[in-house]
């Protein structure tokens, strides 16, 4: 299977799961709102009835952020911060929870979608995926160590020089390598999730290492998919950013349009996430080493044994012990 075939197959799978995507987007948004609303509350309580708010909406002033920090430090900020951190942690757990349902629905070949099936997947795979996330730290950690080593090497080579550019270029290269390494781990974890669902296995560690080996041995296909999806993301961002800049600071109509455009962009990103999993589902059977077929029974003619000794009645039979 080629990269494009995998993408096409994934698009087909995802197209069958529109309701699931809406549910995924909705819960993601709900969880994000738990973080966003208290933070926005800080701004709004500070500016809701102030004429300064309208001024900031016309042209943002960075000094306002410090003004808010100065006013809130030690007081409300100390109270809000732990809540926001907790909300971010819950958001993280929520993302893992939802991914169980999403992968399950993408692996499932039937045409129908039922919320029951989705949530059953969310619950069923939550702990496996959570363990998988923890194991993925090994790979991310390795990537970071590699990055450190590369930076150190660059520093040793050019760090004390009279020119910036070698170290700057080396920095770009190392950053690029780190992004690719992170993408590699992320892709491997996608395959691991698919494997855990397909096999209905609980062996997250084995899935993590197996998928990493799989991605490394089929680098062209697996990372090819990632690259195509990155191009999609760049296109989405390229369309979104200029449009959002144009819509900023406008009247009510523009604000509503902006909200719509933002959520379309987020929906686009949800689609890309589904595509990544969907492509992994498509590719997995082609790239995963086939398990050895069960051994068929082989007829082995039994060689005629030695003739039993002739029974000799009344002869030297041993007594049973």
């Amino acid at each position: 299977m080629t990269v494009l075939q995998a993408i096409r197959g994934a698009a087909g799978r995802v197209a069958l799961r529109k309701r699931m995507m809406v549910a995924y987007w909705f819960f993601h948004t709900l969880m994000a709102a738990f973080v966003a609303v208290p933070l926005a509350g800080v701004a709004v309580s500070n500016l809701g009835h102030s004429r300064y708010g309208a001024e900031l909406a016309r042209g943002f002033d960075l000094s306002w952020l410090v003004e808010v920090y100065f006013y809130l430090q030690g007081g409300p900020l100390a109270a809000i911060l732990p809540m926001v951190l907790l909300a971010v942690f819950l958001l993280f757990l929520g993302s893992i929870f939802l991914s169980g349902g999403a992968v399950k629905m993408l692996v499932y070949d039937g045409p129908d979608y039922s919320p029951r099936m989705f949530y059953e997947g969310c619950g069923r795979y939550f702990w496996r995926f959570l363990r998988l996330t923890l194991y993925s730290m090994i790979f991310y950690g390795t990537a970071l160590i590699l990055q450190r080593i590369l930076r150190k090497l660059a520093d040793q080579a050019w760090g004390e020089g009279m020119e910036d550019h070698q170290l700057t270029i080396a920095g770009w290269v190392v950053s690029g390598i780190t992004i690719v390494l992170f993408a590699l781990v992320s892709t491997a974890m996608d395959y691991a999730k698919v494997r855990l669902v397909t096999d209905d296995s609980r062996k997250s560690l084995r899935a993590a290492f197996g998928s990493m080996r799989l991605v490394l041995t089929h680098l062209g296909k697996t990372m090819g998919v990632w690259l195509v999806l990155m191009v999609f993301l760049a296109v989405f961002a390229g369309l979104y950013l200029p449009l959002s800049n144009w819509l900023h600071g406008g009247g009510a109509g523009k604000i509503l349009t902006l909200i719509l455009v933002q959520q379309l962009y987020v929906f686009g990103r949800v689609w890309l996430r589904m595509m990544a999993w969907g492509a992994a589902v498509e590719l997995d059977p082609f790239v995963r080493p086939k398990p050895l077929p069960p051994l068929e029974p082989v007829f082995v003619p039994v060689a005629p044994g030695p003739e039993p000794p002739e029974f000799l009645a009344g002869a030297t039979a041993e007594p049973e012990v």
């Binding site: 926005a40 993302s95 990103r269």
Partner: peptide
């Protein structure tokens, strides 16, 4: 202002959350 800023913040947190999902 409150609608615009809240939605802006929500948008960025949604994006961060999706990155987290990609990495996890």
């Amino acid at each position: 202002l409150s609608t615009s800023w809240t939605m802006q913040l929500l948008f960025w947190i949604q994006n961060i959350s999706l990155w987290m999902t990609s990495l996890a």
